[in-house]
Structure formats: C-alpha cells, structure tokens
Amino acid sequence: MNVSTQARRSRTVRVAAALLTLAALSACGGPPAADAADPVGAAAPTTRFSENGVTVTLSVSEWKASEGTLTAVFTPEKKGFHLYSTELPATGIEGVGRPTAVAVSGALKAKGALKAAADVRSISVPGVDAQVPVYPDGPVTTTLPVRADGNGEATVLVGYASCSTRDGCTIPVSDRPVRLRVSGDGPSFEAP
C-alpha cells in the first residue's frame, strides 16, 4: 500500500469516527445544535433549572448587532398542570395564581413585551369570583426581545406558578435570578 492510499484511509477513519461521535452525542442529548438564524453557526447560549414542579429552559438566539431574542420554555414536570397567563396581575386574581414572567436587568435590557406562544383560556376556581387566565396544560414558550446595554453582568428574573384542576398548585416562584455575562460576542449564561 502506498503512502497516498494510507493517508486517504487514515483521513476516512478520522472522519467516520468524528461522525459517529456526533451521532452518539445527538442521540444522548449532547450539545445543542447551532441556531439556524445564527450566521456563524454557533450554538445559542442555553441554561436550564427546575424548581417547584416546572423545568425552565432559557436561551438567547438571533443575536445580531447587540440584539436578540430571549426564549424561556416553561415545562410542568407532571401531566395535567398548567401555567398562568403573562397578563395575570402580580398577586394573582383574589390571591390565586402568579403570572408567567421573564424580565431582564443589568447589561441586558428588554426591547419589547414578553409574548407567549400559547392561547389563553379562562378557568373557574372554587372560591374565586372572577375567571382566572391560564395556558393549556403542558409547556409554554415565551419570547422577549432584548438588547445589550454595554458589556457586563445581567440578570434574567423568572416567575411562574403551576396548577392542576385535580392535584392543586405548586409553590409559586417569584423573581428567580439567572445570571448572564454580556460581552462583545453576545450573552452567555453563568454555570448553574
């Protein structure tokens, strides 16, 4: 076997090994895929936490010219649980419920209002005269347009409560901080 054939086979083996590694990582929930809207193909900064029956996944995508979209996906951990509308008053209705909320401070500023990709429905709660606005059972995705206000530390404040018409409610989460660092390359989440 000549040197040229040996080099080609060695290169083919390295490429095949790299592809197998990527396939294994994808199958095992490996690193997140690159954001299609990101022109350089870098993965969107992402972090996740679970508290009081809900897993929250935060990511920043479409980052261009110091602006992007902060996405928060709220996923109740048990079937049959819903989240309250972003429009719910901070103290709920007659004390019932807490709004799904995402706010930013520090070197990251909101550039618009928080929007949810779910329809609001109203439910009756025993002992409450008014209807209570909630999202359908299951995950809710919210988006908040953001912009950098210089480089430095930033905080995302997350709030929510989840309830089930059969199993009751979890303890509300209010102003749960998630830290970021904003630099010339964009935002990055601190390790949890």
Results as ranks from 00 to 15, higher is better:
residue 7 A to H: 14
residue 10 S to H: 14
residue 10 S to C: 11
residue 11 R to H: 13
residue 13 V to M: 11
residue 14 R to A: 12
residue 14 R to Y: 10
residue 15 V to F: 13
residue 15 V to H: 10
residue 16 A to Q: 13
residue 17 A to M: 13
residue 18 A to T: 13
residue 21 T to P: 02
residue 21 T to N: 05
residue 22 L to E: 05
residue 23 A to H: 03
residue 24 A to Q: 06
residue 26 S to P: 00
residue 28 C to H: 09
residue 29 G to N: 02
residue 29 G to Y: 01
residue 32 P to K: 01
residue 35 D to L: 02
residue 36 A to M: 07
residue 37 A to G: 08
residue 39 P to D: 06
residue 40 V to L: 14
residue 40 V to W: 12
residue 42 A to W: 09
residue 45 P to S: 00
residue 45 P to H: 02
residue 46 T to F: 01
residue 46 T to C: 00
residue 47 T to G: 00
residue 51 E to D: 11
residue 56 V to N: 00
residue 57 T to C: 01
residue 59 S to Y: 01
residue 61 S to L: 08
residue 61 S to N: 10
residue 62 E to H: 06
residue 67 E to I: 08
residue 72 A to R: 05
residue 75 T to A: 15
residue 78 K to Y: 02
residue 79 K to M: 09
residue 80 G to M: 09
residue 82 H to G: 04
residue 83 L to E: 09
residue 86 T to Q: 09
residue 88 L to Q: 07
residue 91 T to H: 06
residue 92 G to K: 09
residue 95 G to I: 09
residue 100 T to N: 06
residue 101 A to M: 12
residue 108 L to E: 04
residue 110 A to T: 00
residue 111 K to G: 15
residue 112 G to E: 04
residue 116 A to K: 10
residue 117 A to Q: 14
residue 119 D to L: 14
residue 121 R to T: 15
residue 127 G to E: 13
residue 130 A to L: 11
residue 134 V to S: 05
residue 135 Y to C: 05
residue 136 P to K: 12
residue 136 P to Y: 06
residue 138 G to I: 01
residue 139 P to C: 01
residue 144 L to E: 08
residue 144 L to H: 10
residue 144 L to I: 09
residue 145 P to G: 10
residue 145 P to L: 10
residue 146 V to N: 05
residue 151 N to M: 06
residue 154 A to T: 03
residue 154 A to Q: 05
residue 154 A to I: 04
residue 156 V to N: 04
residue 156 V to P: 04
residue 169 C to S: 11
residue 171 I to S: 13
residue 173 V to I: 11
residue 173 V to R: 08
residue 179 R to V: 09
residue 180 L to V: 00
residue 181 R to Q: 08
residue 182 V to I: 15
residue 184 G to I: 14
residue 184 G to M: 12
residue 186 G to F: 06
residue 188 S to P: 08
